[in-house]
Design a protein around this nucleic acid. Structure first.
Length: 395
DNA sequence: AGTCCACAGGAAGGGCAGGCGA
DNA sequence: TCGCCTGCCCTTCCTGTGGACT
């Protein structure tokens, strides 16, 4: 069964080099940002608290990579110089990890060595424990909050206000905050008090252009693939596609990695442009199917209803009201408790935000206002989603 | 100019599970 | 065990609204 796989020589030398966790020896096209961040954080080496910094840039522009790079360097120097310096890194978007104020504080306290339960305590209590932990330390503590925009949009900016004021009550420690945001207009959501104290310094990460992406990919492929594994034009194609998607380097790497996997699975010697196309499809399909799989069952049912109506009526767009009435029928057929229209409306809007369906609010004048829902998914994906839902409800 | 449809979407709060300290 | 806390899903109640129709 596996002999052909074993006999086949893998095109990959080190697949990890194509993941976003990989830390390359040299970071390309980000010198300015690196130097900038380094000079902002440098005062911590002399025990002074550095300014709070905010990093902006869309996904895959190297923010997290550079934060990791600079803070690691900083930490090494601090250790050599025998300076007290602590760096906490939290990704606020990780589901079930740090997507609420409570969890964020719990996670921070945990990184400082406090033992905190994942739920059960008052937020105030967690805050106190975190504060106690800080109080017992010396030197500078840098708190890096990745994808901070997601958290602020969800729970508001009050926790940030508290964090920025925490220095006032600390004696021996100094806290400085390093926020990382994917959303360039993010500060608009924040209170002006928080805004001014938090964005003392700002660093912008512009998207990579196709040329820069190509160089980045080139460097990584040397590490990741054996020589001559790629046909001409593969790298250019990946960079061009990713440049189109807001200069997303992560996307470019994914394309290349998946293309490699597909070629390998097809037992082909070289990676060709067609594999990149296939990879593009596969990534999109996996993303959507995975998103749907993780939705709660009512949300799945709503999506199923939408697909069902569109298919049956042979329409391209439908309104919330149609979905809701059909949804109620479905519920009684399947003996599932039915939700209110308000909730279903909310679920539809969530599905829209996840990019599974398209929904825009339109006014039909005399005939009211509604959401116009359309689905832009390939047959293949629809089938997979339908299977997923049927599995859930008919077994 | 005014009406009115068919919802959108905000706010508040209920009920439940998971989990803590006492 | 009790009282309390949180997150999560959901309901109830509500106000807001673009534009076809009168």
């Amino acid at each position: 069964m596996f002999s052909s796989y074993l006999e086949q020589e893998s095109a990959f030398k080190n697949k990890d080099a194509l993941t976003s966790q990989w830390k390359p020896d040299e970071i390309l096209h980000r010198d300015q940002q690196i130097n900038n961040l380094a000079s902002i954080l440098a005062p911590s080496l002399k025990g002074n608290d550095p300014s709070n910094v905010f990093l902006y840039g869309s996904v895959g522009t190297g923010k997290s990579l550079i934060v990791r790079h600079v803070t690691e360097e900083l930490k090494t120097v601090a250790e050599n110089e025998d300076v007290d310096l602590n760096i906490l890194y939290i990704n606020c978007k990780m589901k079930k990890v740090a997507d609420t104020e409570y969890r964020l504080l719990a996670k921070l306290a945990e990184q400082l060595g406090e033992d905190v339960p994942s739920t059960g305590l008052a937020t105030e209590e967690i805050y106190n424990r975190f504060f106690e932990a800080l109080q017992g330390m010396e030197g500078v503590v840098i708190i890096a909050l990745d994808e901070i925009d997601a958290l602020v949009k969800k729970v508001g900016d009050e926790f940030l206000y508290n964090l920025t004021r925490i220095n006032d009550d600390l004696d021996t420690t100094k806290v400085s905050i390093l926020g990382i945001s994917n959303d360039l207009n993010f500060t608009e959501y924040m209170d002006s008090r928080v805004k001014s104290s938090l964005s003392e310094e700002e660093i912008i990460f512009p998207p990579y252009n196709a040329l820069e992406l190509r160089e980045i990919l080139k460097a990584r492929t040397d590490e990741a693939f054996i020589e001559g594994a790629l046909k001409d034009g593969v790298i250019s194609k990946c960079s061009a596609l990713a440049a189109h998607e807001h200069g997303d380097a992560r996307r470019a790497l994914d394309l290349l990695r998946v293309a490699g996997e597909l070629a390998e699975r097809g037992e082909e010697e070289k990676i060709e442009k067609k594999h990149v196309d296939m990879a593009q499809d596969k990534i999109e399909r996996d993303r959507v199917v995975e998103t749907v799989r993780n939705q709660p069952k009512q949300s799945k049912l709503v999506l199923y209803t939408i697909l069902d109506i569109l298919e049956e009526e042979d329409e391209t767009e439908i309104a919330t009201g149609d979905v809701y009435s059909r949804y109620k029928e479905m519920c009684s057929d399947l003996d599932v408790s039915e939700l209110t229209q308000r909730r279903v409306s909310g679920l539809i809007s969530e599905l829209d935000m996840l990019g599974v369906i398209n929904a825009k609010v339109i006014s039909k004048g005399r005939y009211g206002r509604t959401r116009q829902i359309s689905v832009d998914l390939s047959e293949d994906i629809r089938d997979q989603i339908e299977e997923l839902v049927e599995e859930k409800f008919y077994v």
